[in-house]
């Protein structure tokens, strides 16, 4: 499956979940998805300079009644710990983060490895709802995460594998 087909599938799920606003910062696993989001007329896409800005964009949109999603690498979750915690526990604002789960066994880069090791622990410490998206069988999460975010009044994070984002079989 091409990454463009895979990106179209994910974007369709995001739309089914009600996403109207998206913010993004690139990762090589996310290129096709970001392009697909950009090309979806029902979604307003914002290119941010830092991931915590993306979280804030989504939070502001959510305050005004729109469902919003940030697309970024898991390094962006580490960077965004303060804003994620603030919106989860102080303001209690729902939003969804789709994060490339870099640093796992399918990811052969020294500089990515630490991200894969520490991100789950950081998300758990922040007391955020989070889920792993391993492949297309987990696609329902792209749609239902918005409902969970609304129910929990909290950011919900989806840690997505390379296969889940690009459609590559390893």
């Amino acid at each position: 499956m091409s990454d463009k087909v895979r990106a179209a599938q994910i974007t369709a799920r995001l739309r089914a979940g009600g996403a109207e606003i998206a913010a993004s910062l690139p990762d090589s696993w996310l290129s096709a998805l970001i392009d697909a989001v950009t090309d979806t007329p029902e979604i307003t896409h914002v290119r941010v300079t830092r991931e915590d800005d993306g979280v804030a964009v989504c939070a502001g949109a959510s305050l005004m009644g729109r469902r919003a999603v940030l697309v970024c690498q898991n390094a962006g979750l580490l960077l965004s710990a303060n804003v994620l915690a603030g919106y989860a526990h102080h303001h209690r604002i729902p939003l969804v983060v789709i994060a490339a789960d870099r640093g796992g066994p399918e990811d052969g880069f020294y500089y990515q490895a630490y991200k894969g090791r520490v991100t789950p622990g950081v998300l758990t410490a922040l007391e955020l709802p989070w889920h792993r998206v391993g492949d297309a069988r987990d696609d329902w999460l792209f749609e239902r995460a918005f409902e969970q975010a609304a129910m929990h009044r909290s950011p919900v994070v989806l840690l997505c594998s390379r296969a889940a984002l690009t459609g590559e079989s390893l």
């Binding site: 109207e20 606003i21 913010a23 307003t44 914002v46 941010v48 915590d52 800005d53 993306g54 979280v55 804030a56 964009v57 989504c58 939070a59 502001g60 949109a61 959510s62 305050l63 005004m64 009644g65 729109r66 919003a68 303060n82 804003v83 915690a85 603030g86 919106y87 102080h90 303001h91």
Partner: peptide, 22 residues
């Protein structure tokens, strides 16, 4: 009025998201 403190440093992007949403 919405006082979006804290987190510090996030207000411009927060306001941007609100403005784009409405």
């Amino acid at each position: 009025v919405y006082h979006c403190s804290d987190p510090m440093g996030a207000a411009p992007a927060f306001a941007l998201g609100a403005a784009l949403a409405r």
